[in-house]
Amino acid sequence: MRRAWLCTPLLLATGGCNATQSTLDVFGAEAREIRHIAMILTVGAIVILAIVVALYVRAVRAPEGRLSHEAGMRMVLWVGAIGPAVILAALLVYALPAMRPRPTSPVDMVIRVEGEQFWWRVAYVPPGATPMLSANEVRVPVGRTVAFELTAQDVLHSFWIPGLAGKMDMIPGRTNRLVVRAEKAGRYRGVCAEFCGLSHALMAFDVIAMPADAFDAWLARDSVSIARSAGRGAALFDAQGCGGCHAIRGTSHVATIGPDLSHFGERLTVGAGILPPSVEATAAFIRAPQATKPGVRMPAYPQLSDADARMIATYLKGLR
């Protein structure tokens, strides 16, 4: 029974442990600095707490009159006022430089991300080239400085990739800059960190840190024209009016109301980081998006048969 009491806080403390969305398991320089500061603050706080408790115990046990009034006052002055002021000043001087943004140059990659209820509009803007549109997934080159330009379309959102950097608010009508540098390739996860509506908790995205060469090749593939097959799925996509909101490069669909689906097939999740990238999950989302994402703006398609929804999903999964 006593062990159960110990286990509960331990389970609560370790329940969130994972490698893809963690401020402790980092892959970016900014997050590494933040973790370093957090470690120093935590260890320092434990040391100070131990000293205070030790002094308290000593004071309670000491016989009355052991310290003169003057000596006691001197201790209050040094340990209670001057000591904490000096420690806090030192911590402030140590931690403030971390708030300075990383310097950027004009050749650095800019990634524009706009928060919408409840997904992410992403545009890669390489210097001197046309932007490449995407959604619900962010790819960053390892070892290069990347500047995120963040804004929102409807309400406040907050862009947070815990393993890469601190969070930054996305405010309608304003562009915030977040400069980062990934240091380790891998698959990670980002989330919306500001309550934005019913599906706020279901507004996430995949983050893929790629070796710089692979990133360049990935980004360049859109400069060649993409041939899109015209099958039953594509015909259904047209007939159901999906193109009224979604764009697919290489087709006549260029709308920008909903997420860009040009490379839907390579996404690691469906519905902004919440569903597995399967045909079944995609088909179910098309027929009833509200079922998995309350408050989503995409209309439901209950009139669509399961087979037709699967056809569209299969077509989308083929877009690479």
Partner: peptide, 24 residues
């Protein structure tokens, strides 16, 4: 004591200006 606290308070208000140079 209040003067001491206020002195430190003013210094702590000043420090961010020394370290931060942009309007964010």
């Amino acid at each position: 004591l209040l003067a001491g606290l206020s002195f430190v308070g003013v210094l702590f208000t000043v420090l961010p200006v020394i370290f931060l140079r942009d309007c964010m």
